[in-house]
């Protein structure tokens, strides 16, 4: 039903602090830069005819995709090294 007993999560994080921190930063940054409106609630610089606020949100979507793709890759490495996901 389940995979062979793996070491608990905490030890994986302790064994690979850099990898774990990189994943955490990717996720937290993604959330922060979408949520903190003072960064992007502005008109300029424009991209084409789009004011900053509007193109920032538009560009953010593919950026999220890439960030989550990287996070998944890192997580996979973490799993391969530590034996747990």
């Amino acid at each position: 039903m389940t995979q062979a007993t793996s070491p608990p999560r905490r030890s994986v994080i302790a064994a690979h602090p850099l990898l774990s921190a990189a994943i955490a930063i990717l996720i937290v940054a993604d959330i922060f830069f979408a949520l903190y409106t003072p960064i992007y609630s502005r008109l300029t610089p424009k991209l084409g005819d789009f004011p900053f606020f509007y193109w920032y949100l538009l560009i953010f979507m593919p950026v999220t995709s890439v960030a989550l793709w990287l996070a998944t890759l890192l997580q996979k490495r973490l799993a391969d090294n530590g034996g747990a996901r």
Binding site: I27, D30, I31, A34, L58, F60
Partner: peptide, 10 residues
């Protein structure tokens, strides 16, 4: 729009 960005990291 911000919501649909935030959904995925969450």
């Amino acid at each position: 729009v911000a919501y649909t960005i935030l959904v995925y990291p969450i």
